[in-house]
Design a protein around this nucleic acid. Structure first.
Lengths: 158, 158
DNA sequence: ACACGACGGTCAGCCTATCTGACCATTGTT
DNA sequence: AACAATGGTCAGATAGGCTGACCGTCGTGT
């Protein structure tokens, strides 16, 4: 049990993926787009997602989420559409350009994971994923889907 | 191979440790101290470490590292001492208060990892650590110790 | 022995991401 | 109908990160 803590080890690997994805999509011409925008964008669902949900998922305040969505919108990756089920809310949806970007990003992720499979062996990568998934049960504040009516979440972030 | 990417899974767990540590040390009275300061401070060695090395380890520019060290110094966690072996350099060293903080932080880390051992079982946690350590060989740009004379690192930062 | 490139570090200026606090409109519950 | 809760925005502040320019010291090659 020497060397960096498990948390640091995760940090190293995780940051590596992030960097790889950012570099690769930048090389493809998506050279605006910051890390924060990407982290938020990654949480947008097929049918669109409310800004508040994005904020929770990305662990930022709704103000910050709004700010980032503004930029994604100005850059043409997403658009805000009225939520038909609630006049207060608006759905953040991908545009065609946004969907292209998402596809490209996922492609890079797959490529990096393939490298990992080469290095560790496919079964051991699978084991890693299983362990991390199991760990999520006690580390993810939003475990098992977006908790619509959560007793966990306080007001904004606190 | 469904669900979040492996990178995201790591992000979730890693962020959890970070938050736990920050909250716990804040509760102990170390309520100044930001995340960025902590990330840098975590890289300071027993004998003191140069600002440039800290910058590399924490993946920020040396300017940013200097800025963070300033704050840690003003808060009384570290002090800068001349490096006896190089008149250009200065060693960032922990003060007594800094060492106390470090001990406290490591204690929390141990506690969190103990929770993980409870959840996964000790051998499986060890497996997780092994896999992550192995992954580090292909994801850590500064693999095998601080590369004093690295051919990897360009001028400042990519 | 010394010139010169590499390195450790700082200063200055800028921008992004984040926060808190206040506020508005709609919803849904009582 | 009143009112708390919810989705979202506006305004203002600050931290943390970047680039570029610069200074002093080190170390190597000739």
């Amino acid at each position: 049990m020497s060397g960096p803590s498990t948390g640091v080890l995760m940090f190293i690997a995780q940051r590596h993926v992030e960097m790889r994805v950012m570099e690769a999509v930048a090389a493809l011409g998506y050279d605006d787009l910051t890390l924060a925008q990407a982290r938020l964008g990654a949480r947008i669902g097929e049918e669109g997602t409310r800004a508040t949900e994005l904020a929770e998922a990305a662990q930022v305040t709704k103000q910050t989420a709004g700010y980032l969505v503004d930029q994604l919108e100005r850059a043409g990756y997403v658009e805000r559409r009225p939520d038909p089920t609630d006049a207060r809310a608006r759905l953040v949806c991908f545009t065609e350009r946004g969907r292209d970007l998402q596809r490209a990003a996922r492609e890079v992720e797959r490529r990096v994971e393939a490298e990992w499979a080469d290095h560790l062996g496919p079964e051991r990568l699978e084991t890693l994923r299983e362990l991390l998934t199991e760990l999520r049960e006690i580390t993810d504040p939003w475990w098992e889907g977006p908790p619509r009516a959560a007793e966990l979440s306080g007001a904004q972030r606190g």
